[in-house]
Amino acid sequence: MSDSQMSSGLVRSHRIINRSGRVGTYSYSVHGAGCRFVSDDGIEVDVDFAPDGSEIFDLWRLRWYGLSLPEPLDLTDQDLRTAVRSLQPLLTEVRPGWFSVAS
């Protein structure tokens, strides 16, 4: 199953979630292969879904998260890559450039 089929499946065939809504202090919207969450104070978290349904992110999504913080962080790809790799084994690279919380 492709990533986009996974998120579409969560919305359409499985009816697990609506295309948009609220969870606690976050609003969310399902898009393509993932889901974007925005907190009431504007912090953005965007994830895609792997074929097994786990949440994954890339450096682009991590950068947008940093830029949305109350005190924005704008880091280079190299700084982000170094930070993510320093968190191994808590994070794992599931495919080149895509990361997930280790199980």
Rank of each mutant, 00 (worst) to 15 (best):
M6C: 09
V45K: 11
F99G: 03
H14G: 12
R22W: 05
G32D: 09
S2W: 01
L62S: 00
S27H: 14
G9N: 15
R85W: 01
P51I: 07
Y28S: 05
S2D: 12
S39H: 13
G97V: 02
S54F: 03
V38R: 11
G24D: 13
D52V: 03
S100E: 05
G42H: 11
I17Q: 04
G66F: 07
T92R: 14
D46W: 01
G34Q: 06
A83L: 09
L73R: 12
L90N: 09
R95A: 05
D40A: 13
I43L: 06
H31T: 12
D52A: 03
L91T: 07
L62H: 00
D46S: 06
G34D: 04
D52P: 01
A102F: 02
V30P: 01
L73D: 01
R95K: 14
T92H: 07
S86N: 13
G66V: 10
L91P: 00
R63S: 06
P96R: 15
R61T: 03
P70Y: 04
V47F: 09
P89W: 08
V30Q: 08
L67G: 01
T76I: 08
L90A: 10
E71N: 09
S103E: 12
G32N: 15
P51C: 09
D52T: 02
V101A: 11
R63G: 00
S68Y: 06
L62I: 02
I16Q: 14
P51K: 12
A33N: 09
S68N: 07
T82D: 13
H31V: 11
V94A: 08
G66Y: 01
S100Q: 12
L59N: 02
Q78T: 07
R19E: 10
F37R: 09
V23R: 13
V94I: 10
T25L: 15
S29M: 08
D46A: 07
Q5S: 10
S27R: 15
W60R: 14
